[in-house]
Design a binder for these strands. Sequence first.
DNA 1: AGGAGATTGTACCGATCGGTACACAGAGTC
DNA 2: GACTCTGTGTACCGATCGGTACAATCTCCT
Lengths: 188, 188
Amino acid sequence: MLKRGLERGEVLRALGEVFRAHGYEGASLTLITEATGLGKGSLYHLFPGGKEQMAAEVLAEIDGWFERHIFAPLRTADDPARAIAAMIAGVDQYFHSGDRVCLVGMVALGSARDSFAEAVDGYFARWQTALASLLRRSGLTTSQAQRRAEDALLTIQGALVLSRARGDAKIFRRALSDLTARLLAPPA
Amino acid sequence: MLKRGLERGEVLRALGEVFRAHGYEGASLTLITEATGLGKGSLYHLFPGGKEQMAAEVLAEIDGWFERHIFAPLRTADDPARAIAAMIAGVDQYFHSGDRVCLVGMVALGSARDSFAEAVDGYFARWQTALASLLRRSGLTTSQAQRRAEDALLTIQGALVLSRARGDAKIFRRALSDLTARLLAPPA
DNA sequence: AGGAGATTGTACCGATCGGTACACAGAGTC
DNA sequence: GACTCTGTGTACCGATCGGTACAATCTCCT
């Protein structure tokens, strides 16, 4: 039972990459065994719920990463400019400057959405709320802050889609840079 | 051979909805026969190239629709405000105010991207060029126009993703409305 | 009417799908 | 060294995958 906790984290990261690369439906058990190095026996031992549980745990782990590195800092920060820069840097890092796709957004578009609707909605909801709370502290009204946070999330998602579609990661970096300015702009 | 040309259009529309609803990988031949009312015999008679040809023709038809209703008007319009309003209205109509997902963006994110890379890239490239040409005529520099057009496409895609993820089509409509203002704003 | 070509449903193909069964391997305990 | 108990590889399951074969049908032309 070699260090289960650690192993599971590794497995989840590999699973995440497979789902990102092939989508939920496209990630066959064959691909999954190749990517994780685990046979079906181990896989179903670790995830008795099968593919659905794997995807659910991957989404949960992504959610956890963002909670720790993005959401929580936003909620507690007192310097808006610094907090926003940190969020943008974290996002840039997580998405490998546009080379990596957002699994949550991908799931949202696909037919697997219904199975993971709560996780998908919760992820974006908490992000928006955390960012809006920071923006409100920086002087915006509640509705301005919410609207601007919504714009930020949508911009990030759109930049990922367009970067991927055009095969040009620079689009993503440009969008992040513009977004920073837009988030820091004084209330309209 | 009952009105082949017309029939094919109908079939392509049905195919588009199936791909939109289930993605390229998820759209099984069973689902396709159900959605189109056509047996495998007819399907493979109409599309000897199988699923890949179906998807390619669907993408081409989408491209054609946008070419006719969005791109061409942008290129020839002389009133920027009116042209942008028309584009936004067309986009709102096409995506059913956020209820419908963008198949091109979906393909771009999935693993089928490589098979349709050219079609996907061309779609966005032509859109961006057409919009940028209008914006340049409205007084922006070439690079300002290109950047602002890029922002428009990315906003639309992101709004579709986020609307879907949160199950709230109002996000899409808000984004379109904001986008209109942003596109018409004077050069920075 | 009857032949030609377009169109269709159905049976079928091998491959692969997600998932299960189960025999076995290692490590810890006594 | 036998007894667990957690892991693991492998064979196998029925279902479904995308695709093919082909005979039956339909439509049109003469």
